[in-house]
Design a protein around this nucleic acid. Structure first.
Lengths: 118, 118
DNA sequence: CATAATTCCTACTTTTTGGTAACTATGATA
DNA sequence: TATCATAGTTACCAAAAAGTAGGAATTATG
C-alpha cells in the first residue's frame, strides 16, 4: 500500500466527490461547457435541465459559485438578467470530466446491462 | 447548444455519478488500485478506510461487484477468506479517475479555501 | 465448553438530499 | 390596476443514504 492515503477526510478523490458529486453539479458544469457561447442565463439552464427544479438549480449554482467553478454576472435590469459561465478553474475541470464521460460512453452499456436493479 | 443531451436520465456523466458517485465507491476502487498486489481482503479494506462502517463497505462492495467493476473471490475456509480486486473494466476506469484526482491535487486548495462552510 | 476469527446481515435511528408548490421583488406593459 | 417576466426564496414533506449496535455462521483452539 506504500504511503498512499485513502482516508476519507484527506483523500483527494473524496474531496472532489463530496463537493460536486451531487445530483446536479457536474451536469450544470457540463451544460455550460457544451453551450455555444459558454454563457447561459438561469432560465436557459433550467430549460436544458428540465428535471432539475428551480430550487435545486439555484442551490447548485450558488454552491458552484462559492467553489469558484462558475462566475455569476448580474445585470441591474428589470426583469433581472443573470448570466452564468465557467471560471478558468471550472474550465480546467472539464478535461478530467470529459475523460470520465468518454469512459462512460465506452463502457457503460456493459455496466448497466449487468445491473439487477435499474 | 447543438444536439448535446444534458438530460438527467440520458446524460452519461449522470449515469456515472448516479452509480458510483456515492460516498465510498470511488474510494474502494482507488484503494484497490493503489494496493501493492491489487488484491485486498474485507478487513484489509476496512482497516484502510477506517471511517467507513462495515455495513457501508459491505454494501459498496456488493454494488461494485454487480456493476462488474470488482471481482469477489471466496475461499471456502474457516474463518472465511474473501478477496477483492479490480476487474478489467474496473481497471479501465482508473485513468479517468486518476486524472480527476490529479486535478483535485492541483486545484483543490483554491476551491476549499474559498468555501464558506467547511 | 467458551472463545476467537472473519465476513458479513439486520433492525433501528439519524442525517442528508431532493421534490412541490407557493411566494417575493421589480418595473414595464396592456 | 392587473399582468407579465425573471430569478430566485421559503416552508413543508418524502425519500434516500448512512451511522450504530448487535447478531449469525463456521470451526479450530485452549
Amino acid at each position: 500500500m506504500s504511503d498512499t492515503n485513502v482516508n476519507y477526510r484527506t483523500c483527494p478523490i473524496r474531496q472532489v466527490i463530496s463537493r460536486f458529486g451531487d445530483k446536479w453539479s457536474l451536469l450544470v458544469l457540463y451544460t455550460l461547457h457544451m453551450s455555444d457561447t459558454g454563457v447561459l442565463r438561469f432560465n436557459e439552464l433550467h430549460h436544458m435541465m428540465t428535471d432539475c427544479s428551480q430550487k435545486m438549480l439555484s442551490a447548485t449554482l450558488k454552491n458552484l459559485e462559492q467553489l469558484h467553478l462558475i462566475h455569476r454576472e448580474v445585470y441591474p435590469v428589470v426583469p433581472p438578467r443573470v448570466e452564468y459561465s465557467l471560471t478558468e478553474m471550472g474550465k480546467s475541470l472539464m478535461p478530467p470530466v470529459t475523460s470520465l464521460i468518454d469512459w462512460a460512453n465506452q463502457h457503460f452499456d456493459d455496466v448497466v446491462s449487468n445491473e439487477v436493479i435499474v
